[in-house]
């Protein structure tokens, strides 16, 4: 279908739910999600593709919703942070992020979670380097990233069915002091 107009009426499939929405052709997916769909879980920190806060999944791949034209997404499968939990049951990533304090201010968190989800969907047992590489486009100013890497690894272990994947005490309480 060609959208030959400055206004678009279109069906968007978000978190498995189809919605008919109308928006200006120049509005990005970020704007349409937040303003037309009421899905404010998707954040924005620059709107220029420089921070990663607005990351969502389009057909499973993490992309920056601030640089995607919503009018281009007819038929695409869009996933936002609101679609990660199954009812009241959190996704393992959400569990581990909450548990470890990998979300401090929480503003980069939705983008981090979705980028990490795409990684875990592809890779069962990532190394810490794999995690860092995959998340390198998502900036965080609070955590120093350590708890995020630990949370992704813990979630990966949980997804694999590895019950011993919790981070070591050292990661949570600091290194033991012997002196």
């Amino acid at each position: 279908m060609m959208n030959d107009a400055t206004q678009v009426i279109q069906t968007l499939k978000v978190n498995g739910e189809e919605r008919r929405v109308m928006f200006p052709a120049h509005h990005t997916l970020l704007e349409v999600l937040r303003e037309e769909c009421g899905l404010t879980g998707t954040k924005h920190g620059c709107e220029l593709g420089e921070c990663g806060a607005c990351t969502v999944l389009v057909d499973g791949a993490p992309v920056l919703s601030c640089l995607v034209l919503a009018a281009d997404l007819e038929g695409a499968d869009i996933q936002t942070v609101e679609g990660m939990a199954e009812g009241q049951t959190l996704h393992p990533l959400q569990e581990s992020f909450a548990e470890l304090g990998a979300a401090q201010c929480g503003y980069c968190t939705p983008g981090m979670l979705l980028t990490a989800k795409a990684l875990l969907d592809e890779c069962e047992q990532p190394t810490d380097e794999d995690v860092a590489e995959a998340l390198a486009g998502n900036l965080c100013r609070c955590t120093g990233y350590a708890k995020i890497v630990e949370a992704v690894q813990w979630a990966a272990a949980k997804v694999r069915g590895d019950e011993d994947g919790a981070p070591a005490d050292e990661a949570v309480f600091g290194k033991e002091i012997r002196s």
């Binding site: 404010t40 936002t80 609101e82 959400q94 992020f97 979300a103 929480g106």
Partner: peptide
């Protein structure tokens, strides 16, 4: 777990722009 943790990982925390 922080008291605000679950809301922050589900997108439910309402920041000012929300």
């Amino acid at each position: 777990r922080r008291v605000d943790g679950p809301a922050k990982v589900t997108g439910q925390t309402v920041f000012a722009d929300d």
